[in-house]
Amino acid sequence: MKEFKYVITDNEGIHARPAGELVKLAKTFASEVKVAKDGKEADCKKIFALMGLGVKKDQEVCFKVTGEDEDAACEALEQFMRENL
């Protein structure tokens, strides 16, 4: 398993549009992708679960990626977060 942490800088947090893009991106990998915030965890391939975390600006999220393509997935997700959130 690989993991990375990220603090949201976007004013609106993980709102509908980036959540949608994030799910789309996560689905391109075979690995399981979990996003955790304050002890709550969601499947990053499920848009309701992800939006249900209610991640806002300045909050820290932790991505946990497990699977054969975890290295590539981690890198792509981290880049997406940096560029969009």
Binding site: A16, R17, A19, G20, V23, D43, K45, F48, A49
Partner: peptide, 19 residues
């Protein structure tokens, strides 16, 4: 595109496993 994105998100919601 920005205003249209909502319909793409709706598609994802319809295909959401939990739902």
């Amino acid at each position: 595109e920005v205003n249209a994105a909502i319909f793409e998100i709706h598609q994802m919601m319809l295909e959401d496993d939990d739902y």
